[in-house]
Simulated scan of single mutants.
Amino acid sequence: MKGWLPLTLGLLAVILGALWTLQGLGYVEGSVLTGETVWAIVGPVVVLVGLACLYLGLRLRGRGTRR
């Protein structure tokens, strides 16, 4: 069961970061975030943090199966 929390948080961060990036760039309309440059910057940072969490979660899960 090790690593599920970082995997879940990482996946959520990647999805939200990608959405925020697309909104900040103006590709996704209908939100107060649309066209705001700050979200085009924050989004990729959140994606990178999410990818790091995914990597950590995968490493933790791999450690639990090896003996």
Rank of each mutant, 00 (worst) to 15 (best):
S31R: 04
T37L: 14
T34E: 09
T21I: 05
G50M: 11
L7H: 04
E36L: 13
G17F: 06
Y27T: 04
L19C: 07
S31W: 07
G30E: 03
G43M: 06
V38M: 15
E29R: 11
G26I: 07
R61F: 06
L11A: 15
L12E: 01
L5R: 12
R59Q: 13
S31T: 15
G50S: 12
L16W: 13
V47K: 03
V42I: 15
P6D: 10
L22W: 05
G30K: 02
W39F: 15
W4G: 01
V45L: 15
G26Q: 04
L54K: 01
T37W: 13
V14Y: 02
L51Q: 03
R67E: 14
E36Q: 14
V45T: 15
G17E: 05
L19I: 15
L58H: 03
A40I: 14
T21H: 12
V47L: 01
V47C: 05
V32G: 03
E29C: 03
T21W: 11
G57W: 02
G24D: 09
L51W: 00
A52R: 02
T34H: 06
L9G: 12
T65P: 00
A18V: 05
G3K: 11
G30N: 06
P6S: 11
R66T: 05
L48K: 06
V49A: 14
W4A: 07
R67H: 11
G17S: 07
W20Q: 12
T34I: 03
L33K: 12
Q23V: 04
G3R: 09
G64N: 10
L7F: 02
W39P: 02
V14C: 10
A52L: 05
G43E: 07
L58E: 02
G35E: 06
T65F: 05
G26A: 06
L25C: 05
G24S: 06
S31N: 11
L7C: 03
L19G: 02
K2L: 10
R67P: 13
R61L: 12
R66G: 02
T65V: 13
T37I: 14
G43V: 06
V42R: 04
K2E: 08
L48T: 13
L12K: 03
A40F: 10
T21C: 07
V45E: 09
G3M: 07
L11F: 12
R63A: 14
G57L: 01
V42Q: 05
L5Y: 06
G17P: 11
L22T: 04
A40G: 15
E36W: 12
W39L: 08
G43A: 09
V14H: 00
I41K: 08
G50T: 11
A40N: 08
R63H: 08
G10K: 05
R59M: 06
T34A: 09
P6E: 07
C53Y: 08
L25A: 12
R63G: 13
L58P: 03
E29W: 06
L9R: 08
A13W: 05
G17K: 12
G35A: 09
V42L: 14
W4T: 11
V38I: 15
K2Q: 10
R63W: 12
T65C: 01
K2M: 07
W39S: 05
G57N: 01
A13M: 14
P44E: 08
